[in-house]
Design a protein around this nucleic acid. Structure first.
Length: 270
DNA sequence: ACCACGTACCGCCAGT
DNA sequence: ACACTGGCGGTACGTG
């Protein structure tokens, strides 16, 4: 695909690839451009079978023209919000929010809010831990927990609203140590029961599951980026021994640590 | 692959 | 009435 952006986009697959996609992301485009009927068909089918559909910026117009937003709440770039509302009266357009989730359709505003929306989706599908890791790697602020509300109005600057940010931060810095609920609860000034309950309510996972996930990610990163031995990697990531680490690799990644490192280095050199 | 042990988890419930 | 807390017990799960 040629673009006017100074680079071309290499598209390896055709539209048929969307037939069983879990997520279809629709980028910004020219608002006045017609949407190809085939694209409309693909989008409608995807919506009907329950796939995630996510638009960024003026991509909301594509969804609107495909009829996916009828009767729904949506948003778009503030520059286009008024027009979207005028052209599609049956859409409840909110011009102030970063993104809106309605059913399995997520619309987002300007470019950066697309990142928020994507992180939001990752949090839903893979959990807050994964979203935090992605956010960290992208060097964007960690996303606020959504609560029950569909809307996440604005990025949150204050740390104090995210009561678990401090604890999880501390946990990440002490991954290699043995962390118990009792200690974490003490550190968070809560009883163990309340800590566990609120942790799950806020982050979507239990403390133990979150810890395991972080340890796994740390181990993966060490396997990717260092040449440490497996025992050292296990120690660094908090698994203690290579046997325990192997156990978790098998359980959630369906590989072994050695195989993972080999596959990764092969992929790099290829 | 298996077992034994301890911790984490969660539903329940009484108390605030 | 309501929301939240925190202890208890059975069960699932991680660890060795």
């Amino acid at each position: 695909v040629r673009t006017s952006l100074g680079y071309d986009m290499m598209i390896a697959d055709g539209l048929e690839k969307a037939a069983d996609a879990d997520l279809i992301a629709v980028p910004a485009h020219l608002i006045d451009a017609d949407v190809h009927p085939e694209v409309v068909r693909v989008l409608r089918e995807a919506a009907e079978r329950g796939a995630w559909i996510l638009s960024i910026c003026s991509g909301a117009f594509t969804l609107a023209k495909a009829g996916l937003l009828s009767g729904r709440s949506a948003t778009t770039h503030w520059m286009h919000a008024e027009r979207l509302a005028a052209e599609f009266p049956d859409i409840s357009v909110d011009p102030d929010v970063l993104f809106v989730e309605d059913g399995r359709i997520i619309t987002s505003a300007g470019t950066a809010s697309g990142i928020d929306a994507c992180l939001h989706l990752i949090r839903i599908e893979l959990g807050a831990a994964a979203a935090n890791v992605v956010a960290r790697r992208m060097v964007v602020p960690p996303q606020r927990a959504g609560g029950q509300s569909q809307y996440i109005a604005a990025p949150v600057k204050e740390r104090c609203t995210d009561s678990f940010a401090e604890v999880t931060e501390w946990m990440l810095e002490h991954l290699e140590e043995e962390l118990t609920i009792d200690e974490l609860a003490r550190r968070a000034l809560m009883s163990p029961r309340t800590f566990a309950r609120r942790f799950k309510a806020d982050l979507g996972t239990t403390p133990g599951a979150w810890l395991n996930r972080q340890r796994l990610l740390r181990a993966q990163q060490l396997l990717e980026e260092s040449s440490l031995g497996l025992d050292a990697v296990a120690a660094e990531s908090g698994f203690g021994t290579a046997a325990v680490m192997r156990h978790h690799f098998a359980k959630t990644l369906d590989t072994t640590p050695a195989a993972y490192r080999r596959a990764f280095t092969v992929r790099l050199s290829a």
